[in-house]
Write a protein that binds this DNA or RNA. Structure first.
Length: 692
DNA sequence: TTAACTGGAAAA
DNA sequence: TTTCCAGTTAAC
């Protein structure tokens, strides 16, 4: 025992005399290490003379640790430890990453720990973005560390060593070209003038069908640059981003903008981020996380198609890119542009409250530019026209396609992917499901009975699960089958498909039939000569609160791809208000009606609402702890998705009038701090979630 | 990791 | 009541 537990020092003493070389080396190593530690300690003991205190936000998600901690700045780091740099600090038991947010002369706290290391001298957290992260964290009752993780991409050390490429001189602002691009949208010329002269106008922009919106955004950016300020544009996905990238290059010239996308890979993502952070470029475009891009002297923020759910962050605290940008526009006195072919209730609210003005197509432009028609999708038509039975493309549509093909490409938007023909109830249009496995019932051949597409069950006595009907209606055709039939109907015409998994970004402006599933529509060079929206009823079948709104947004985006002077044909029930709004291109009107419905139901944006989700015990506890402002309502709790480990969870909804929104989020923030400090089971808080 | 704090039990 | 010890907590 005694021999085994001998002190290390004794062993070291023995080694000096007799032990073999390897052990001696190790002892030397140990001594060198000890000497290095002493040297480091000595260096740390020398504290910076000016502002020896660094205020550091540590990268920990715990709500009660969401405040700056003071550290001593060693003299060796006096210069590098500037606000905005990444540092490593000792925090309790372990070393954690953090950001210096300020330097100070003194601290309230005695015996400060020294900063361990300045990870890099790059200023990645600018004061503006730090302030933005503050307000986003407060608005969403979340922790700043979580927000910063969304805002600042992971460091990529080798990329950091490269200098950012020099930016070529930008061409001078062409005010006439900008005005021409925006012609017909009113009052866009005033908006552009205001931007160019350094103002901060705010607008909600409804784009006319056939508008090359990316081009217009690029011109608005150019106007902002002309005032000596930077701009930031956020779009939902990489398809929009690619289009915008091309437009920016065309209008601003090569290398004038950075492209920020999380899925571009860590090196490229960080390289582009650094170009912005270093002030090498004044313009940034990107997907949702780009809303935090540290653009210098920000003059304009733009969000396109803000109804797309991709703009809602999936990670805590679940901020929406539109709201981040709008907060930013206020804080940095920048202009704001919220644009789309569709209109969200939230965007409509901005103009209703007077926060922003409207930019709309003039009536003349709307009428002359595109004709939008609707054709019935009733069983009567199906009887009359044998073609429709097979293909779901009515005869009237065939005529439009034929005419439009003479001058360019035609888009057919269909809601279903693949080939198989699924069936639906002919009375209520609920898709027919297999009674055994809930798979889709399909027709294998002309005379075959309906068969399940998943388990192969042959259904001979089907009855609709929703309405009890016995009739099956003409099949829902997938995009592959539609494409095949188009190829047969229009022999010699090129047929292109685009659907999830095989999305085509662009097609040439030459005659072709493009069959795409919803959201996968390629952009046609110069626009489509005609756009057909098929099987519109299928999108409306879902019992979601936002079904109509979302369907209208998706149709509007497809219709928006038409070229000026082109035609849009909607196949659907002309009596439906949502289709009427589409045909009249009155998405703002539809949003307004939706807004009053939501107001009556006390839903956002007129109310502020939050969900709290957790295990039954934790939720119950949280609701007791939550100090709600008077007038707040609590709904539920109702069953929610179980945890990843399968534990049951409940969700409660709390809501207040919008005027009390700040009180609600403060209470929720306090709740999270208390729960985190007491190490209670976590609950998830989501403020104004996109869906309920 | 570690100093400060808490609470409970033994000693006086 | 005081003192000691072990476990807990906060964390610069």
């Amino acid at each position: 025992m005694a021999v085994v537990s001998r002190e290390p020092q004794e062993a070291a003493g023995a080694a000096e005399l007799e032990l073999p070389g390897l052990v001696r080396d190790r002892v030397k190593e140990g001594r060198a290490k000890a000497a290095a530690t002493r040297a480091r300690k000595a260096a740390e003991a020398l504290i910076a003379e000016v502002d020896p205190v660094a205020k550091v936000l540590v990268d920990l998600p715990m709500a009660h640790l969401d405040k700056p901690f003071d550290y001593a700045v060693p003299a060796s780091m006096a210069e590098e430890a500037r606000p905005g740099v990444r540092v490593k600090v000792r925090f309790g038991p372990k070393d954690v990453d953090g950001f210096v947010v300020a330097r100070a002369e003194a601290s309230e706290v005695a015996n400060l720990q020294p900063l361990k290391r300045v990870v890099s001298s790059e200023v990645v957290l600018t004061p503006q973005v730090a302030a933005l992260s503050d307000s986003v964290a407060r608005r969403y009752a979340g922790a700043r560390a979580d927000v910063l993780r969304l805002a600042i991409p992971p460091r990529h050390a080798s990329t950091e060593k490269e200098p950012s490429a020099a930016v070529p001189a930008a061409p001078p602002f062409d005010a006439a070209a900008a005005a021409a691009a925006w012609a017909g949208h009113e009052p866009a010329t005033a908006f552009l003038r205001h931007l160019a002269s350094g103002g901060a106008p705010r607008a909600v922009w409804h784009a006319a069908a056939g508008t090359d919106h990316a081009d217009l955004i690029a011109h608005a950016t150019a106007a902002t640059l002309a005032s000596g300020r930077g701009a930031l544009v956020v779009v939902p996905d990489w398809k929009d981003l690619a289009r915008l990238d091309v437009a920016m290059t065309k209008v601003l010239g090569e290398g004038q903008h950075a492209v920020l996308a999380a899925d571009a890979g860590p090196a490229s993502r960080y390289r582009e981020f650094l170009r912005v952070a270093r002030g090498a470029v004044k313009v940034a475009i990107g997907t949702r996380a780009a809303a935090f891009a540290p653009v210098r002297h920000l003059g304009l923020v733009v969000v396109w198609d803000d109804g797309d759910d991709l703009l809602a962050e999936q990670r805590s605290p679940y901020p929406h890119a539109r709201d981040v940008l709008l907060l930013r526009a206020e804080q940095e006195q920048a202009a704001a542009l919220v644009g789309g072919f569709a209109r969200t209730v939230e965007a409509g609210f901005l103009s209703e409250t007077g926060w922003a003005q409207e930019i709309r197509p003039s009536r003349a432009l709307a009428r002359q530019r595109v004709s939008i028609e609707i054709t019935g999708d009733t069983d009567f038509d199906l009887e009359k026209d044998p073609l429709t039975r097979a293909s779901r493309v009515p005869r009237e549509a065939h005529e439009i396609i034929r005419a439009a093909l003479a001058t360019g490409p035609v888009l057919l938007q269909t809601p279903r992917r693949g080939y198989a023909a699924s069936l639906a109830c002919d009375r209520c249009r609920t898709p027919a499901r297999c009674p055994a496995c809930q798979g889709p019932l399909q027709l294998g051949g002309p005379a075959a009975p309906p068969t399940c597409g998943w388990c192969g069950h042959v259904e001979t006595a089907w009855a609709c699960g929703a309405c009890g009907g016995f009739g099956l209606r003409a099949p829902i055709i997938g995009e592959a089958r539609t494409a095949e039939e188009m190829g047969r109907s229009f022999a010699g015409v090129r047929v292109v498909t685009s659907s999830a998994g095989a999305v085509r970004q662009t097609v040439p402006g030459t005659p072709a039939i493009v069959v795409a599933t919803i959201g996968a529509e390629p952009v046609a060079e110069g626009g489509y000569t005609a756009v057909l929206l098929l099987d519109t009823w299928l999108l409306l079948g879902r019992p979601d609160l936002r079904t109509d709104e979302e369907a209208l947004r998706r149709w509007s985006n497809a219709a928006g791809l038409v070229r000026p002077g082109g035609r849009v044909l909607v196949v659907g029930d002309p009596a439906l208000p949502v289709l009427q709004a589409l045909v009249r291109w009155d998405q703002p009107g539809f949003a307004q009606r939706e807004a009053s419905a939501r107001q009556e139901a006390h839903l956002p944006p007129a109310s502020r609402l939050a969900t709290i989700t957790g295990t039954p015990g934790a939720l119950d506890d949280a609701l007791t702890l939550l100090a709600l402002p008077p007038g707040a309502e609590v709904l539920g709790p109702a069953p929610a998705e179980p945890t990843s480990t399968g534990d049951a969870r409940l969700r409660a909804v709390v809501r207040v009038p919008r005027s009390l929104g700040v009180r609600l989020t403060e209470a929720l923030g306090e709740l999270q701090r208390v729960r985190s400090a007491r190490k209670l089971d976590p609950v998830r808080v989501q403020v104004d979630p996109p869906t309920l």
